[in-house]
Write a protein that binds this DNA or RNA. Structure first.
Length: 492
RNA sequence: CGGGGUGUGGCGCAGUUGGCUAGCGCAUCUGGUUUGGGACCAGAGGGUCGUGUGUUCGAGUCACAUCACCCCGACCA
């Protein structure tokens, strides 16, 4: 069962796709553009959910759930927002099937046409705001901080596992506030939550910044983003947080009575991350041997492979490993003993590497006699043999070190591929080689659009916490005056 | 929707100017030997060649139609 994965250097795109599928994370479903997330992949998503959920709760956010179907009329209210999604909506028009009169399976019952079509949510702003209208009366009801974990559907033309699928899982937070300042602060707070999650849990260095007006979420006044660099130098938008102003409140007539007795529209934010983060994980850390999972997200942090010739040896080794496993579990680690006796050790090594397990322990008769164990790190592929005695805290520390090392590696890679650029000819050439270019921009949508058309590069963000560069200069394209540099890159 | 490509056991593919019984690798199953980096040997099962119509003594192969999927664009978390 030689599961050869395409080499990363040869064909990055193919490598990514192979990895997502062969590392047992997901597979193509029968439905066009949709995917099945397999148990191993879902375990990672669940871990992401639980960590994020904890972080949200600390900011006062509560979970809720809103309907999958949204009446079409709800979409008539916020024109700008709707324009952003209208072209990719799935629409429910009927509510019943019937037997085909010609005896060929089932057909849609033409009698069962809905009075008003239902839209499968591409995002929930419209239904949530029409609900919030009923929940918000007074300043005492604010702030209202809700999040929902759900699936959304966007009928994309071209799809890619985890990065762009017709249906995806995500989390969307929607908040309502009494003042613009408070809402603005919330949007910033949440993007910082995402940044912390990306950096500390996913070991993914991200750039926090504002989106340019062109790249903003439909209906937002300001959009914050976390942008990550993949190993081909392309950018991936890993999460966004929007300051929505009073646009939705006005469209859905959500007013509150203030302390002064006067009515005003509420101020809103929304923010989300999706299963796209799974794609980011694969592309940011994976190598030619497969996935490299940060210990904080690995469903299995330590895998143990017993090596034996006889049943007696097997029993003895597995028993010893079980003791170590118990010790590690007591320290809160997820451990698996791979005692499948139909597979050889070499196969198991390769398989667990493909699946990205951070640490592998191998123990055979030799080790048993010597009281040692072989430890292999997934991130560096180093192997060392250590005494078994008191190994647990060492492994704990090693997991922490791996988490840090994966981050450092990704950070070093990114730093090596971020450059300032002030020459248009140079820009056109370098941007194609997978770089983030820090360039002056005159702030106009026209320039941004022209650059996009000529090079496919977009402004990923106007950075606020790394690569911040407030300085006078001239626009890379138009030559007009500029006060700061922004991040340009080709993105997924 | 524009440009290009591919449809043959579960997966990946070969199949000559039409020719006789449709083949290979992987996977699966059985038996045995193995087991410190993706084992080996022997045997077995599994295909209306995407679909339809046509040409022909004869079609996986040729023609026309049709469907599906993939890649490159436009759109996007």
């Amino acid at each position: 069962m030689a599961k050869e994965v395409t080499q990363r250097s040869e064909n990055y795109s193919q490598w990514y796709n192979d990895l997502a599928l062969k590392a047992d994370l997901a597979e193509q479903s029968a439905v066009r553009g949709c995917m099945v997330i397999k148990p191993y992949g879902y375990a990672i998503w669940e871990k992401m959910q639980s960590v994020l959920d904890g972080m949200f709760k600390k900011t006062g956010v509560q979970n809720a759930y809103f309907p999958l179907f949204i009446p079409k009329s709800f979409f008539s209210r916020e024109a700008e927002h709707v324009a952003g999604f209208a072209k990719e909506c799935a629409v429910v028009t009927h509510h019943r099937l019937m037997n085909d009169p010609d005896g060929k399976g089932v057909v849609v019952d033409p009698e069962a046409k809905l009075e008003e079509e239902l839209i499968v949510r591409p995002t929930s702003e419209t239904i949530i705001w029409s609900t919030y209208k009923n929940w918000i009366k007074s300043w005492r009801d604010l702030p209202l901080l809700c999040n929902q974990w759900c699936n959304v559907v966007r009928w994309e033309m071209r799809t890619r596992v985890f990065l762009r699928t017709a249906e995806f899982l995500w989390q969307e937070g929607h908040t309502a506030h009494a003042t613009a300042e408070e809402a603005q602060a919330k949007a910033e707070e949440m993007v910082q939550v995402y940044a912390r999650f990306a950096r500390e849990v996913m070991a993914l260095p991200v750039i926090v910044g504002h989106k340019s007006p062109n790249e903003r979420f439909a209906g937002a006044l300001d959009t914050f983003t976390i942008e990550a660099m993949m190993q081909d130098g392309k950018a991936l938008q890993a999460g966004t947080s929007h300051f929505l102003g009073q646009n939705f409140a006005k469209s859905f007539d959500v007013k509150f009575t203030g302390k002064d007795g006067r009515d005003d529209y509420v101020w809103a934010t929304s923010w989300g991350v999706s299963t796209r983060l799974m794609g980011a994980l694969i592309m940011a850390h994976g190598d030619d041997n497969g996935l490299v999972l940060p210990p904080a997200l690995a469903p299995i942090q330590v895998v143990m492979v017993p090596i034996y010739k006889t049943q007696e040896e097997r029993d003895a080794v597995v028993q010893k490993l079980a003791e170590v496993k118990a010790g590690l579990e007591a320290l809160g680690h997820a451990v698996k003993i791979d005692d499948r006796d139909t597979l050889r050790p070499g196969f198991k090594f390769a398989e667990w590497e493909l699946k990205g397990v951070p640490l592998r322990l191998a123990m055979g008769a030799r080790d048993l006699a010597a009281g040692t164990v072989e430890i292999a790190r997934r991130d560096t592929l180093e192997k060392i043999t250590m005494p078994l005695e008191g190994i647990e805290p060492h492994i704990s520390a090693l997991l922490g070190e791996i988490q840090q090392n994966i981050y450092n590696k990704a950070l070093a890679f990114r730093d090596a591929n971020v450059e300032k650029c002030d020459d248009w000819a140079e820009f056109k050439e370098k941007i194609q080689t997978g770089k983030f270019l820090l360039c002056h921009w005159d702030g106009t949508a026209e320039t941004e659009q022209a650059i996009k058309e000529e090079t496919k590069a977009t402004i990923r963000c106007i950075p606020v916490d790394s690569y911040v560069c407030e300085e006078e200069g001239r626009d890379i394209y138009s030559g007009k005056p500029s006060h700061r540099r922004v991040v340009f890159a080709i993105s997924y």
